[in-house]
């Protein structure tokens, strides 16, 4: 008997505007636990909008359609409740929080999501292991969140958070941008670890991350809608042929 994995995210006919401009125009997407989906598309296609609207960014207005997380309508959940329910967004441009040390921030985030303060010794061990996996020096913990970080350091901190928060749904918005090949391998290792037991949506421009994190499904997004879905071979084809062949408006 085939066991159907739990449905984590279901997006139905999603239409979204930002400051009155229509960005998403009828997106449909379902992701189950254990699946890795990748969305590829040109700049401005609506990929990051999709990730941000799922996470509840207040700038985006849903004008039509629905999003369900583990069967529950998402509009019922505030941003922090989504995080506590197991949703995670790795930001393309993570915010800088001056004066807030990374160590303090991580402990607070873990406490909020797990609904209890982590035990000191066990947490230190867990944190050390995750940081070693990402080749992060302990001095990171005393730095201010993303303040003066290089692009690669910001992305590593995002993945570190993902490893500690152990989400059911991981949304990764251009996590590969700004990374050199060594850093990309390290980050990909972290994503693969989390992806085993969660649903994962990777937003990217390039094939290179998908060489290291094998997607089950690849979607091409054009002008605010998913126009083609396929397996990993679609990513190779998009890399090779670009998007014009899928763009009916071109």
């Amino acid at each position: 008997m085939r066991v159907v994995a739990e449905e984590i995210l279901r997006i139905e006919n999603l239409h979204v505007t930002v400051e009155g401009t229509s960005i998403l125009k009828g997106v449909n997407l379902t992701i189950h636990r254990g699946e890795i989906h990748a969305i590829m598309g040109r700049n401005g296609a609506g990929k990051s909008t999709l990730a941000n609207v799922v996470m509840g960014h207040p700038a985006y207005v849903i004008t039509e359609g629905s999003i369900f997380y583990r069967g529950q309508p998402l509009e019922e959940l505030a941003v922090f409740e989504r995080a506590r329910a197991g949703m995670f967004l790795s930001f393309q441009y993570p915010a800088v929080i001056p004066g807030v040390q990374v160590g303090t921030f991580l402990k607070k985030a873990v406490t909020s999501v797990r609904d209890e303060a982590p035990k000191g010794r066990a947490f230190r061990k867990e944190l050390t292991a995750a940081m070693e996996q990402l080749s992060m020096d302990k001095s990171f913990l005393s730095r201010y969140v993303n303040d003066g970080f290089s692009g690669g350091e910001k992305k590593r901190l995002e993945i570190l958070q993902m490893l500690l928060l152990k989400p059911n749904l991981a949304l990764l918005d251009e996590t590969d941008s700004g990374l050199d090949i060594d850093a990309l391998r390290i980050v990909a290792k972290g994503i693969n670890e989390v992806a085993v037991d969660s649903a994962c949506l990777i937003i990217t421009h390039y094939q290179r991350l998908l060489d290291l994190v094998k997607p089950d499904y690849v979607h091409a997004m054009i002008n605010g809608a998913i126009v083609q879905t396929g397996g990993p071979e679609l990513a190779l084809e998009l890399e090779d042929r670009g998007y014009d062949w899928l763009d009916v408006t071109a």
Binding site: G56, V79, F80, R82, F91, A95, G99, V100, F105, K108
Partner: peptide, 25 residues
């Protein structure tokens, strides 16, 4: 900044308190 912290599970009040704390520190 508020959205970033709330996306990590901090309530609006906790997020603002953390930002203010950091700003003053």
């Amino acid at each position: 900044q508020m959205h970033y912290l709330m996306s990590r599970g901090l309530s609006p009040e906790e997020s603002q308190a953390m930002i203010v704390n950091g700003f003053l520190l």
